[in-house]
Design a protein around this nucleic acid. Structure first.
Length: 840
RNA sequence: GGGCGGCUGGUGGAAUUGGUAGACACGCGUGCCUUAGGAGCACGUGCCGCAAGGCAUGGGGGUUCAAGUCCCUCGCCGCCCACCA
């Protein structure tokens, strides 16, 4: 009879809740293990991506529990954010109600999956008990100058009507709604993540258990580049402009200078120029151009000559100063020296505008060419030419030598530039943590005193989606008295980007109920760092970079004593259907809850782990889920049919016959394989080895066959076992159930309790089985015989056969002789217990 | 343009790290059982070939007794970043 997953799964979910099986308690005498998955945004229903993420984490958590570790495995909700506001506008409900309804539904679905969470630690970031500590951290950052306000052009999403951090702009588009991002001048709050750029980069090297590509992405994002700041003076003027270059070896080939249209020197340079109006028009045009067009290169190579010249400090040459859209004010110094022969962008620009070229690096692989014959810039290494005293030097050496030479001569100085910008944190949205600052006409920008925290987000508010920040239209919120002078003042109405909330939640999980401090340092000292963090690759930069930054800051505050929050990182692959990522917009989603209703959570968990290794993409397959379900039934049926709870005899391996020994050997092989695979997160092969074990169990038909199956509808042939057979089978069942329990926990508990007979003990606390090395030994082994590397025969031989004997047997074989054809055997290669190769 | 992966049957994927390529599963086929099967069981299933055997891990080359695995080269696909100076 198929196992009744409906009743069984609910039964054990209630059991886990009732006895708080997964409650974690710090205990210095026990080794801890912290497993964490990236907590979800509560959108209501969980999707297959969640199921995959959390199933992987859950198997790890349960496996570690069974290995006797003190496991912390919490769950919470990243509950602030824009979808709640959009829902509020659309359905006219309060964001808090909408969010809590979603959480309610999600929690129920998570529980139906049987995940081993310590629900007592559940946290919700839109709870004031949580976000007051956002505000507290913000104030601490402000105290140290790490949170500050400045006016600057910012990324603006016209559709979301809010500012965006650089990390949230993906190819010129809003990460959430994909609208084209524009630039806007605003006074906004920033977090000085750049104060940690060196540490953020350096410590990546310590993250030995992070995927390489995440490290690479962060490295690129932080973007440290070494170069030289070179000073150019304006001919006939006192002004000096500094350019940054990573290629000082090409300085003699600089034939013009380009400033970004926003460069501060532009105004001085063009005042009184003949074509001043034309230039101003160009600058206005560029300013109106969307940033995305400039960033994606779609804007072409527009530019205009300033009418002025700069002096190249290394040779005194006067070279024209241009303004062009391909130079960005945000990077470097907002000015470049252009070397069209050795930079493709400069090359295109020079060709378009008829500017001079001069080759200064000779490509060693190519003949000398004339500048006019060049078809594209040569950006590789080579030998310096047209570079005075540096002629003949290798460009790699010249990069160093010219840099130091310029420094000595006072022409420039070696410099480091970073791509990483400070983190724009203010959002003109309602559903987020209020920024705890007050503006007073007399005292200026005043922090909300710590004891007045939290600044509570008013929940009774109307959200229309029109007319700017909703909090600004709530006088009870805005109008306050200044904490310093007591006079009338206004609250900051911007809220924090929600990435702030998720940058430290893993610490809060260590002591979620603490209302006196951000987290209990003692608890954090015990549980942190997170031993295994699991989530999607989409957070490779945003969330993971911010979390690393917060950890470093909290260390400087003295609250933690480690530099990095996440020891191991696993980025699980996406779930696809019909070759495409499952998504609502594509309409190719499969609802996990519907699958659970049809096949049970255990079958879903098994399928999702079996179908692909955790980091690979996973193709959903409606048929294969049936296969998972069949396998579970097979295990269930086997234990039901063959385990004898009344049997009390002891296992005595000395009484084993060959069949017994083989089954016992297979069992121990599987224990070894599953244990290794769990350690290495190779769940797919762990499951396949259990399937192989079940295939072997079918062949174990020892004892006397009896007519009646033990259970109705069972098709398993029944055998009456001898004492030894039953002892082996009982042991087999016990071990099998333990091995499968992390993956199919409900069935695991059910069968375990049948085995142990009604005790209120979770299988999770039963020590993980160990394999017996002696049981793995085989009397005979199969040895492969090759002739000239091709497979020509197989021999079942005693495991301890000598090489001479083996050679005799193989050479005597008829089939081998056919292939040898009496030719002399030049070489006899023997790989012990595996193969022989005759080279003739 | 830069970075990181990947390319193995009809499909998802295995392969002890240089040693039987295709484990395990899905699908498909044949048979049994059944009133019935979208249940269960048994057997088969890389390609060519009646067979012996040959050919096969994106293409080509190399190292080796032996290559999916190592080296060279070419091609294709995916993801991330990108007028970053």
């Amino acid at each position: 009879m198929p196992y009744n997953f409906k009743d069984i799964e609910i039964k054990w979910q209630l059991f886990w809740d009732k006895y708080k099986i997964f409650r974690a308690k710090a205990d210095a005498s026990k080794e801890k293990y912290y497993v964490l998955e990236m907590f979800p945004y509560p959108s209501g229903k969980i999707h297959m991506g969640h199921v995959r993420n959390y199933t992987i984490a859950d198997v790890i958590a349960r496996f570690k529990m069974s290995q006797g570790l003190n496991v912390l495995h919490p769950m919470g909700y990243d509950a602030f954010g824009q979808p709640a506001e959009n829902a509020a506008i659309k359905h006219n409900v309060k964001p808090s109600k909408w969010t809590h309804d979603c959480i309610h539904q999600m929690r129920a679905e998570l529980k139906r999956m049987g995940f081993s969470y310590d629900w007592d630690r559940e946290l919700v970031t839109c709870d004031k008990k949580y976000y007051r500590w956002n505000q507290w951290i913000f104030l601490k950052m402000a105290e140290r100058g790490l949170a500050y306000k400045k006016a600057s052009p910012v990324n603006w999403c016209p559709s979301c009507e809010t500012t965006l951090a650089n990390e949230e702009v993906i190819q010129g588009q809003c990460w959430r709604c994909h609208a084209q991002v524009t630039q806007k001048d605003l006074e906004q709050w920033y977090l000085k993540i750049t104060a940690y750029n060196e540490k953020l980069l350096e410590d990546l090297k310590t993250l030995a258990h992070w995927p390489e590509r995440v490290i690479a992405m962060q490295e690129n994002w932080i973007g440290k580049s070494y170069g030289v700041n070179i000073h150019f003076t304006v001919q006939g003027g006192k002004e000096r402009m500094t350019v940054f270059t990573t290629r000082p070896d090409t300085i003699f080939g600089a034939t013009y200078v380009v400033l970004a249209p926003e460069h501060p020197l532009v105004e001085t340079l063009i005042r009184g120029a003949v074509n001043e109006r034309e230039i101003r028009q160009f600058i206005t045009d560029v300013a109106n151009e969307s940033k995305s067009a400039r960033l994606t290169g779609g804007a072409g190579k527009g530019g205009i000559f300033s009418g002025r010249y700069a002096v190249n400090p290394v040779n005194g040459e006067a070279i024209p100063i241009w303004f062009a859209d391909y130079v960005l004010m945000e990077y470097g110094t907002g000015a470049i020296m252009a070397v069209p022969t050795h930079d493709q962008r400069d090359f295109l620009f020079a060709r378009e505008h008829g500017l001079k070229l001069r080759i200064v690096i000779q490509d060693p692989q190519a003949p000398r060419v004339n500048e006019s014959a060049m078809e594209k810039a040569y950006e590789g290494e080579g030998t310096l030419v047209n570079s005075k005293q540096f002629d003949g030097m290798n460009s790699r050496e010249a990069i160093r030598k010219i840099g130091t030479w310029m420094e000595q001569e006072g022409l420039g100085e070696t410099a480091v530039h970073w791509r990483l910008r400070d983190w724009l944190i203010s959002r003109q949205r309602y559903w987020g943590t209020p920024i705890p600052f007050i503006y007073c006409g007399r005292c200026g920008t005043v922090p909300v005193p710590e004891k007045q925290l939290p600044v509570v987000l008013p929940e009774d508010i109307r959200i229309t989606g029109e007319g700017g920040s909703p909090l600004g239209q709530c006088p009870e919120f805005v109008n306050v008295s200044c904490p310093k002078c007591g006079g009338a003042a206004r609250r900051e109405t911007d809220t924090m980007a929600t990435f702030f909330d998720s940058s430290w939640y893993y610490l809060r999980f260590c002591s979620p109920g603490d209302d006196r401090r951000v987290f209990d340092p003692k608890e954090a000292a015990y549980w942190m760092t997170v031993d295994q963090y699991i989530g999607g690759i989409e957070h490779a930069i945003l969330h993971l970079l911010y979390s690393r930054f917060f950890t470093k800051f909290l260390k400087d505050l003295g609250l933690v004593d480690f530099d990095e929050p996440f020891n191991r990182l696993l980025t699980q692959g996406m779930v696809l259907k019909d070759g495409e990522v499952m998504s609502k917009s594509k309409g190719n989603t499969v609802d996990p809850d519907a699958i659970v209703a049809k096949y049970g959570a255990d079958a879903l968990r098994l399928f999702i782990l079996f179908a692909a290794p955790p980091e690979d993409q996973l193709e959903w397959n409606d048929n294969a889920i049936e296969g998972a379900w069949r396998f579970l039934n097979r295990v269930y049926g086997f234990v039901e049919d063959r385990f004898d709870p009344g049997f009390k005899g002891q296992l005595n391996k000395e009484l084993f016959d060959a069949d017994d020994r083989e089954l016992d050997r297979q069992l121990h092989l599987t224990v070894k394989k599953v244990t290794d695979d769990f350690k290495n997160y190779k769940f797919n092969t762990a499951i396949s080895s259990m399937m192989i074990l079940m295939n072997h169990s079918d062949k174990y038909k020892t004892g006397t066959k009896i007519q009646e199956p033990k259970t109705k509808n069972s098709t398993v042939e029944q055998y009456k076992y001898t004492t030894q057979n039953q002892a082996l089978i009982n042991n087999f069942c016990r071990t099998l159930v333990q091995l499968i329990a992390p993956i199919a926990p409900h069935m695991g508990e059910e069968l375990w309790h049948e085995i142990i007979g009604g005790k209120e003990e979770s299988i999770i606390h039963v020590p993980w089985p160990r394999h017996d090395e002696a049981a793995l030994q085989q009397d005979t082994v199969q040895i492969i015989a090759q002739v000239n590397g091709k497979l020509r025969g197989r021999f079942d031989l005693p495991a301890d056969i000598s090489e001479e004997e083996l050679q005799k047997i193989v050479l005597a074989d008829k089939k081998i002789q056919e292939f040898v054809q009496n030719k002399p055997v030049k070489k006899f290669i023997y790989v012990p217990r595996k193969l022989v190769n005759l080279v003739i």
